[in-house]
Amino acid sequence: MASTDHPAPRTNTPVPGEGLDAAHMPGHWLLARLGKRVLRPGGVELTQWMLDTLGVDPQDRVVELAAGLGATARLTLARRPAAYTAVDRDAAAVAALSTLAAPGRTGVRAVRSDAADTRLPDGDATVVYGEAMLTMQPHPAKRRVVREALRLLDDSTGRYAIHELCLLPDDLDPALADRITTDLQKAIHVGARPLTPTGWRELLTDEGFTVTAHKTAPMALLEPRRLAADEGLLPALRIAGRALLDPAARRRVLHMRRVFHRHRAHLGAIGLIAVPTRSQP
């Protein structure tokens, strides 16, 4: 995934987006090329809240949709679930996820498939979650992914979680929401379509879930304090150093950061926990 100006450091593990230049690749894969591993809008803190609230334990069979680079997978595997399945449509991501080592007796597999059509069996999971992926889908695709999560879940013990970008507040002016969305799409080169907190909740309830918990957090993905908290101080410095040495990457990162900062009052991260409505008394 080399830039047209300076090649990125190579590792033995392929990074999604290999072969694309820094000026045109999706923003999350650009950050991954620079060494960033936590690519979630609410950072590790909101991911940990999500896993804690899901209550992942050794009895659970977990499916992670759009598992990406495996940062959350490692946190999940540390909880020693009975089984963990990573789903991603990127071949490089699946190759990396296939090498994950699990403590204890956790069965691990990685499947190259679409989050809206995993081809996994009905009721295959007690826990399904996805992070920073529904935001990138148009509304009909969002619905298909949520519907697939419902199909995958065990009726009696199933829990579903999402961790996504959100627009604030709920009554945000539609014209401003459109402007923010357009700015995001131009900056990250992906069709980002975040919803308000109520919009995310309604998406889940309309597709057969009951929301049981939610939490919001600042969207500070590229702020120095969040970068250090998510990656560690030395890795954060290495990421910054690689960006400084790569002019095309540096321009992209600074553009993304300016957009995030410009709309900081109206951009946030949200986590939602839900259960199938049919399992409610």
Rank of each mutant, 00 (worst) to 15 (best):
T99Q: 14
D21C: 09
R109T: 10
L39H: 03
P41Q: 07
R80N: 12
G55C: 11
T76E: 12
A132T: 10
D155P: 13
A78S: 12
V111T: 02
T126H: 09
R112K: 13
L153P: 05
V111L: 10
Q59G: 15
D117I: 00
R74D: 11
P41F: 00
D57E: 10
T106E: 05
L100V: 01
S113R: 14
A23R: 13
P103V: 13
L150C: 04
M133L: 14
L153M: 08
G19T: 13
W29H: 11
L39S: 03
R109A: 10
T99H: 11
G35E: 01
G104T: 01
H28P: 05
K36A: 12
L100D: 06
V108G: 11
G107M: 12
A32F: 04
A125P: 09
A86C: 06
G43S: 05
P58A: 11
A101H: 13
G19W: 15
E18Y: 00
T76P: 08
T135C: 06
E64N: 07
L20N: 11
L97P: 04
A116K: 11
A82S: 14
G55N: 02
R61T: 13
M133N: 03
D124P: 02
L134V: 08
P81F: 03
A96P: 05
P26C: 06
V38W: 14
R112I: 08
A110L: 11
Q59C: 14
M25P: 00
K142P: 03
E45N: 05
G107W: 03
R143I: 14
D52G: 07
P81W: 01
T106W: 00
L100W: 10
G68L: 06
R143A: 15
G17T: 01
S156R: 12
A95H: 13
D60S: 13
L152I: 07
G55M: 04
R37I: 09
L77C: 12
P138M: 01
M50V: 15
G70S: 03
R79W: 08
L150G: 13
A78Q: 13
D57A: 14
